[in-house]
Design a protein around this nucleic acid. Structure first.
Length: 487
RNA sequence: GGCGCGUUCGUCUAGUGGCUUAGGACGCCGCCCUCUCAAGGCGGAGACCACGGGUUCGAAUCCCGUACGCGCUACCA
């Protein structure tokens, strides 16, 4: 055991999409496995036929893949402990449930949902501390059981939990956790449709798949005693448990759909980089003990440890994600951004075909520090793709004086006489014109910016001119003089 | 209700008994840089470490209690 490489699993139920909380769980499992040179297994917990969602497994796998969380064993790729879909392992669960029954650790229960409902109501009326099954069917004799079984009476298999025993286990994140078995219900192990419940299936599979560390959300902490009991009844070695803190909404309730986006897919569509999402989610509940906040996946793998996972829930703070996205985007090579821009352009239906790679690359170099998302290359610098149709009103009021048209006209003529001007040529020319007019450069620069971009914010104005080119520049100055003067 | 887990700036967090007048980051505010906007640099506001008791020469750090929050309490995972 000690010499073995760790084997961990991410075991989602396919309810439609990959939740960011699920992503965090998957990521920690992945990081732990990779850090320790172990295996990361994907297992699909599809034992609830009522919650089956078409295409959910594919979607889940696609999201994991997009994030770069490649699994070593699992659906599609297989592995020596398959199948990895619980719905394909039904015989296994039945066999182990039968073993439990044979050993007196579990029993058949023929109670109808109606009786169970009544029982619960009665217990509530009596204000009993906890609603629990009353072990009614535990006391059925052999003949009664055989008769019911042969008659095909619907039944489940329940765990026989002995009262008043201490159940103690160790959790890497929380330390020692203790429960009294009197608070543990006789959990259903096999449902009347023949499918196992999570509790049986996860214990059987984790054992059979040789899982060494169970890293999952805190919502499972309360049912861990049931799992501990099962390991003991089977006489199997228990895995090491690590229960992760929950991800929360801004109001500190459990992260939910009602208060924003929760699917990894939502963030991808909104233009977040996978690097940023991974970096952000990794820091929600873990840190290396230093001030480092910008991480690439390989650095996370290198530094991750379960011992440094926090105990308390973390609010999913969009502001910080935005910042990380900008940081990651800025660190990307310009050629990578070029490809991303082309794809974004397709989505926005912008005919970027008219613009050469060279042209786009120039835009990237001047806009890089001014954008947080790829689509902002369009929304924040639309003027590189299309001449301005309107001009920012506040900027007109501030910088467009009565003498401006005439001054710009001079500038226009000066620019027009330039041959293949570079950025410096525009700059020198403008300085010269300002001097001739005996005015500050700002008197020309601000209206010029407005004329060529329609905006008051953006890259250096001479950068804009150079990228736009002489013809376009003088055309835009001319247009601005005509339009702004008359409105 | 019962059981379990948690509680350091608005948010993510550092802190594992003296180095702490509690550090960093995001966000916010100001200054510098500057043709604007960013980026960057510098600075500021912001946490009586949930509260109350202990233990100790000394506690955010250890113990107990309380409050609050969250999770579980299904033939869901």
């Amino acid at each position: 055991m000690i010499s073995e490489k760790p084997r961990v699993r991410f075991a989602p139920s396919p309810t439609g999409y990959l939740h960011v909380g699920g992503l965090r769980t998957a990521l920690y499992n992945y990081l732990f496995a990779k850090h320790n040179d172990g295996k990361f297994v994907l297992r699909i917990e599809d034992t609830d036929r009522n919650r089956y969602v078409e295409g959910a497994v594919e979607n889940l796998i696609e999201s994991l893949k997009w994030c770069g969380l490649e699994y070593d064993e699992g659906p599609n790729i297989g592995g020596q402990f398959g199948p990895y879909m619980q719905s394909q392992r039904l015989d296994l669960y039945k066999k182990y449930a039968a073993d439990l029954i044979a050993n007196g650790k579990a029993y058949y229960c023929f109670c109808t949902p109606e009786r169970l409902e009544k029982l619960r109501e009665e217990q509530q009326r009596q204000k009993l501390p906890q609603a629990k099954y009353d072990k009614h069917c535990l006391h059925l004799n052999k003949e009664e059981i055989e008769e019911n079984l042969s008659k095909g009476v619907p039944h489940v298999v329940r765990l026989d939990v002995e009262a008043n025993k201490k159940i103690i286990f160790n959790d890497v994140v929380r330390g020692q956790v203790e429960f009294n078995s009197s608070n543990v219900d006789d959990q259903v192990l096999i449902k009347s449709d023949g499918y196992p419940t999570y509790h049986l299936a996860n214990v059987v599979d984790d054992h059979l798949m040789k899982i060494t560390h169970v890293i999952r959300g805190e919502e499972w902490l309360s049912s861990t005693p049931k799992h501990v009991l099962l390991y003991d009844f089977f006489d199997w070695e228990k895995p090491i448990f690590a229960h992760l803190p929950l991800l929360l909404n801004p109001d500190r309730s459990k992260l939910s759909k009602r208060q924003g986006d929760v699917a990894v897919e939502d963030y991808r569509i909104k233009g977040f980089l996978k690097e940023a999402l991974i970096n952000f989610v990794a820091l929600l509940g873990w840190n290396a003990g230093d001030d480092k906040e910008f991480y690439y996946m390989n650095e996370l793998i290198e530094n991750f440890s379960l011992e440094r996972v926090n105990k308390s829930g973390a609010v999913f703070d969009l502001e910080k994600l935005n910042w990380l996205n900008a940081e990651h985007l800025r660190k990307k090579p310009n050629t990578d951004i070029l490809q991303m821009i082309k794809e974004e352009g397709k989505k926005l239906n912008i005919d970027y075909q008219n613009f050469s790679d060279d042209y786009l690359l120039r835009i990237i170099s001047v806009m890089k520090e001014r954008v947080s998302f790829v689509n902002e290359y369009f929304t924040k610098s639309f003027f590189f793709f299309e001449a301005p149709q309107t001009y920012e009103q506040a900027a007109i009021e501030k910088n467009w004086k009565s003498e401006t048209p005439e001054q710009l006209n001079k500038l226009h003529n000066a620019f027009a006489s330039l041959a293949n001007p570079l950025k410096e040529d525009y700059e020198n020319t403008l300085a010269k014109v300002a001097e001739e007019l005996n005015i500050g450069k700002g008197k020309l620069i601000h209206p010029l910016r407005l004329a060529v971009s329609g905006m008051s914010a953006g890259p250096g104005v001479f950068d804009i001119l150079f990228i736009l080119g002489k013809d376009e520049t003088i055309k835009r100055i001319r247009a601005a003089i005509d339009k702004i003067g008359k409105s």
